[in-house]
Amino acid sequence: MKPDAQSPKAAAPAAERLAGGSRRALDTIGRLPPCRWTQALLTRWGISARTAVIAVPYLWLLLFFAAPFVIVLKISFSETQIAMPPYQPLLEWAGERLTDIRLDVNPGNFLYLIEDSLYLRAFANSLQVAAVSTLLALLIGYPLAYAIARSDPRWRGILLMLVILPFWTSFLLRVYAWIGILKNNGLLNNLLIWLGIIDQPIVMLQTDFATYLGIVYCYLPFMVMPLYANLEKMDLTLLEAAEDLGCRPLRAFASITLPLSLPGIVAGCMLVFIPAVGEYVIPALLGPADSLMIGKVLWTEFFNNRDWPVASAVAVVLLLLLVAPIMYFQRVQGRESGGRP
């Protein structure tokens, strides 16, 4: 747009006019407050500000979040071939006319997932690992959230911050920390030997135990946050009433606090369970080499076997498994935060 600074005479008159025009326009824009000219621009295009606010993120998500799933679905039905990209096109024009579309829908990848018991075992194992880790995270997270919610209000903010702080440090490095603790000559084994509890190191790294521990450790903040939010706003006069009526603290907890905190428990469990099912990093670093976690299987199919269609089929099945919990999570989320005018 800018005329060439070194040879101003050489610039064609038309280009100069254009450049001058755009500069004038820019000057006008520069003098107006930004809200004015964006609005002017939008009105000229016939778009209201409201539409623009909604449309920009909407289109982005449609393009980069929704559309990719359609492509995954498409490729999960195509056949592998040795090329780049390594799959056959699903739709082909076999002839000249438009009606000659050949649709190669190939359910082979899904049949393969059923035939080879590896995949079914991987799915079952992932669900089990995720469920056990979620339960463990609840057992550790609930007391912690409870203790924070019932502590002195002056301390609550700091304690909550201390729960979130690890979440801000690198996930990968937090998993890495456990390698140093769990390995054969690691911190924990050294400590146990020094205490005289064992005389041979226990193999802890590359076991299922390590996977559980890693998931619980990394996802604990996600469990504590919704639980804390729920427990903190609980009406404590109910507990006082129960105490006045002679109810013991444990009984009051079981019959008042626990049922009332159910929404927090559900939200926390969802936040841990759903991502844990497809977890890759934790089983890859802490789990056994042959661990059957579906995230790891998908990764291997994709990066090591370069079988994109099978990887896509695995992703489709995983998504179908998780659709119900995700929808449920969204309903809970919607009730908690959205829907208000």
Binding site: I274, P275, V277, Y280, G295, L298, I326, F329
Partner: peptide, 9 residues
């Protein structure tokens, strides 16, 4: 909550 492997793939 979407598992990262799905988003990435």
């Amino acid at each position: 909550v979407m598992p990262e492997v799905i988003t990435g793939l």
